[in-house]
Deep mutational scan, measured.
Amino acid sequence: MTFKLIINGKTLKGETTTEAVDAATAEKVLKQYANDNGIDGEWTYDDATKTFTVTE
């Protein structure tokens, strides 16, 4: 399955996707991606669209 991350950061905005077997696995990968890029904020997840959003 494809999961999307929408980034609403102070210095970085955009989106990325990852392939994962489930939402929990995708969340780990996407949170690591955000952490690697210095993004720390509030996370939400929409199961209907398989989209995570992080807002700083």
Rank of each mutant, 00 (worst) to 15 (best):
N37W: 13
K28L: 11
T11E: 15
L5V: 04
I6D: 03
I6V: 14
T11F: 11
E56T: 09
T44A: 08
F52D: 00
G41D: 02
N37G: 05
E27H: 10
T51H: 03
E42C: 06
D47S: 13
N37E: 11
T25G: 09
K4F: 07
A34S: 05
K31S: 05
G38H: 11
F3S: 01
V54F: 03
M1E: 14
D40S: 09
A26D: 00
G9M: 15
D22N: 10
T16S: 07
A23I: 13
T53C: 06
A48T: 15
K50R: 13
N8D: 07
E42W: 10
V29M: 10
K31Q: 11
V29W: 12
K13H: 12
T53K: 05
T11C: 09
G41K: 01
E27S: 07
K10C: 08
K31T: 05
W43F: 05
E27F: 14
G41M: 02
M1G: 12
Y33W: 14
G14M: 15
K4L: 09
G41N: 01
T55K: 07
K10P: 10
D46A: 04
A24H: 13
D36L: 07
G9T: 15
A26R: 00
V29Q: 14
A26V: 02
T51V: 07
F52V: 01
K13V: 12
K13D: 06
I6S: 04
F52W: 07
E27G: 07
D47V: 12
Q32G: 08
L30M: 06
D47G: 11
I6E: 04
A24N: 11
D22T: 06
A23H: 07
I39A: 04
V54K: 01
I7R: 02
D40E: 13
D46G: 02
G9S: 11
A24V: 13
F52C: 01
W43H: 00
T16K: 15
K13Q: 12
D36Q: 12
I7K: 02
N8T: 08
A34D: 00
K10F: 15
T17A: 07
E56R: 04
D40W: 10
V54S: 02
T17D: 06
T18R: 06
A20W: 02
N8L: 11
T11L: 14
E56F: 07
G14E: 12
E42G: 06
D46V: 05
T17R: 08
T51C: 04
W43Q: 00
K31F: 06
N37D: 03
A26I: 02
T49Y: 06
T11G: 08
M1T: 13
I39F: 07
M1L: 12
D36F: 08
K31M: 10
G38D: 09
A24P: 10
T16G: 04
K31A: 06
T51S: 06
W43C: 02
I6W: 04
K4H: 09
K13M: 14
T16N: 05
A24Q: 10
T51M: 04
K50S: 07
D36A: 15
G14V: 10
E15H: 06
K50T: 05
L5K: 00
D40C: 07
D22P: 01
T11K: 08
L12P: 05
T25V: 10
T2V: 13
E27M: 11
K31V: 08
Y33R: 03
T17M: 09
I39D: 01
A48L: 11
D36Y: 08
A24D: 12
L30Q: 00
G14D: 12
T49A: 09
E42F: 10
E42L: 12
Y33S: 02
V21D: 11
K28F: 08
V54C: 05
V21P: 11
M1D: 08
G14K: 12
G14R: 12
T49G: 05
E15Q: 06
T2Q: 09
D47A: 12
G14H: 10
E42D: 14
E42R: 08
N35Q: 13
N35C: 07
K10V: 14
K28W: 12
V54R: 00
T51Y: 03
V29H: 08
A26C: 02
A24E: 12
K28D: 07
T53G: 03
I39S: 02
T16P: 03
L5F: 04
K10R: 13
E56C: 05
L30P: 00
Q32M: 08
F52Q: 00
D22Y: 03
Y33P: 00
T55N: 10
K50Y: 10
K10D: 09
D46C: 06
A20L: 03
G9I: 14
E19G: 05
K50P: 00
E15C: 06
E56Q: 06
Q32Y: 05
Q32W: 06
D36S: 11
A26S: 02
N8Y: 10
Y45E: 00
A26G: 04
E27I: 15
K13L: 10
K13I: 13
L5N: 01
I7D: 02
A20R: 03
T53I: 10
T44P: 01
K28R: 14
E19N: 14
A34Y: 02
T44I: 11
T49V: 07
L30N: 01
K31E: 04
K10G: 13
T53N: 05
I39P: 01
Y45V: 01
T49I: 08
N37H: 13
G9V: 15
K28T: 13
K50N: 12
A48S: 12
Q32F: 05
T49W: 04
A23C: 06
L12N: 13
Y45N: 00
D46Y: 04
T53H: 07
E19T: 15
G14P: 13
K10N: 15
T49Q: 08
D22H: 03
Y33T: 03
N37F: 12
T55F: 09
V54N: 01
E19K: 15
E27T: 04
G14A: 11
D40F: 14
I39N: 02
A20Q: 11
D36I: 08
L12V: 14
F3M: 01
L5C: 04
A26E: 00
T51A: 05
D46E: 09
T11A: 13
G9C: 07
T16H: 14
L5T: 01
T16A: 12
K13N: 13
W43P: 00
A34F: 02
A26Y: 00
L30Y: 05
D40V: 15
A23Q: 08
K4V: 15
Y33K: 03
F52Y: 06
I6A: 04
N37A: 13
D47M: 10
E56G: 05
Y33F: 14
E19Y: 11
V29P: 02
L12I: 15
T11P: 05
E42I: 14
T11R: 04
A24G: 11
A34W: 03
N35S: 11
Y33D: 02
D46I: 05
D22M: 03
T11Y: 14
G14Q: 12
D47E: 14
D47W: 13
T18E: 04
D40A: 08
K13P: 07
E19Q: 14
A23S: 09
T2F: 13
Y33Q: 03
A34G: 03
T11V: 15
T51F: 03
A23M: 14
V29Y: 15
A24Y: 14
K4C: 06
E15V: 06
K28H: 09
I39H: 04
D22R: 03
Y33H: 06
A48Y: 11
E56Y: 11
L30G: 01
Y33N: 02
T44W: 08
T17V: 08
M1A: 10
T51E: 05
T17W: 10
A34H: 01
K31Y: 06
G41F: 03
V21Y: 11
W43N: 00
E27L: 15
T44F: 11
T18K: 04
Y33V: 05
E15S: 12
D46L: 05
D47N: 13
W43L: 03
G38F: 08
T17L: 09
K13S: 09
A34Q: 02
L12Q: 11
T2P: 06
G14N: 09
A23D: 06
T51R: 03
N35R: 13
V21Q: 11
Y45W: 04
